[in-house]
Computed example of a mutant assay.
Amino acid sequence: MKKIAILALGIVLFSCKKEKDAVQTTTQSVETEANEVGGNATAKTDFFIKDLDWSKIPESSANIGAFPYITAPDGFVILADGHNAVAKNGMTVFSDFNKLIMYNGTSFYNAEGKKAEMHFKMAQEKNDFNQFKFDKSVDSYLESIGAVLLFKGQIPKDKLTELNKEDDRTVYNYIQGDPWNSDPVRHYALNHKNGKIMFQIWSNSATGEVGVVELEGFKQTIKAPTASEMQKDIEAKGKVVLDINFDTDKAILKPDGQKVVDEIYNLLSTNSSLKLSIEGHTDNTGNSQHNKQLSGERANTVMYILASKGIDIKRLKAAGFGAENPLVPNDSETNKAKNRRVELVKF
């Protein structure tokens, strides 16, 4: 009897080891493919990569229809924003330009372009959410059109924490679902003949979400205000609000920021009696004391450049207010961008 018991135990342990090895092999296979696509060797992993190696993703010519390229599986519906009705356009949220932060098993990648978010529920309110059917439907469809799975599982929490250091809403805004909890995410890349498309899928026992980005380069539509436009605002309001770009966390002007300062010089040159207070402002991200100091340094940069070009410094003042005087509440990325500004105030 002892021999039989020992033999049985040995079979159980061998079976468990085989199952564990199979799971590890599958995980390693997915991670190896993701590393190859991301172009990152295991020995050297970048936290963010500039781009995926699309040459390693086979091009697809499948019929994928129109953006956002996914519809609700049978028995499911896509909710409108607010979740009180069914979406009429097949999307919960649409943005003409936004991003998803993709993960390939080792590194993150900013997928920027036209973006849609879709939140799913069962068509019949009485039915519990069928997570297995939802996952199977979406994954099978993506595989059928040639999408490549970059990552499946839970993104390591230390990496999510690092992502959130600059803005504690980064993960919430740019990774679909709730990656902080144990529910796995799936990130796909589709190298279609008509464009490059990224998908994120997340689900739990109550709901499912899909995020889609059709990649495209950012097109700048903001133009530097002219001296005459600045003058009109100052005459009407006593001040002008400007978006002057500096290097990140520095008081060094970017080239497009220099163009704005050149227009301020033109304004002052053609209005010899005009005196301006140059006032820097930030959003509320980060340390308030640091923000105030940085906004003051940036205002000083503008003032001294104008003085170096021949404007009498007695006609100028410089001050930094950090996040003390927001134009709008700092409750979204759009509003934060509005609060990061330089104001020229007549005195």
Rank of each mutant, 00 (worst) to 15 (best):
P225G: 06
K17Y: 14
H290A: 11
E162H: 13
F14K: 14
L344E: 00
T92Y: 01
D183P: 02
T32I: 13
K254L: 13
K115D: 00
A66T: 11
N191S: 03
S332A: 05
E209M: 14
N84A: 07
D51M: 07
H192D: 03
D178T: 12
Y304W: 10
N266M: 11
S144M: 08
S107Y: 02
L190S: 01
T270E: 13
Q289I: 11
N98G: 04
G39F: 07
N35Q: 15
K219A: 08
T71K: 10
G38A: 01
K292S: 02
A224Q: 08
S308P: 07
I244H: 00
K136E: 15
E59T: 11
I234V: 13
Y69H: 04
A80R: 02
G217M: 05
A62S: 12
M118D: 01
F76D: 00
L7Q: 08
K237C: 09
S55M: 04
A236G: 13
E143P: 07
K346T: 14
K2G: 11
E19N: 12
I64T: 07
H192N: 07
H119T: 10
K157P: 09
S29M: 12
G286C: 02
T26V: 15
E112C: 03
Q176E: 10
N98Y: 00
N291G: 00
K223C: 08
N194Y: 08
N127Y: 06
K237N: 15
W54H: 09
P326L: 04
G286E: 01
D46I: 07
S55F: 04
E59Y: 07
T71H: 05
D233I: 09
S308F: 15
V213G: 01
D331M: 05
L9T: 13
K99H: 08
K2V: 11
N89A: 10
N284H: 03
D331F: 04
A5I: 12
Y174T: 04
S107R: 00
S205N: 14
E59F: 06
T248Y: 11
D139H: 15
Q258E: 15
E112H: 01
N287G: 01
P225D: 06
T170R: 08
V138R: 00
G195I: 06
L150H: 03
D331H: 06
L242R: 00
T45S: 15
D249Y: 10
E112V: 00
D331W: 06
V210S: 00
T207A: 09
K292H: 01
I6C: 06
F67Q: 03
A85W: 05
K254G: 01
L160I: 07
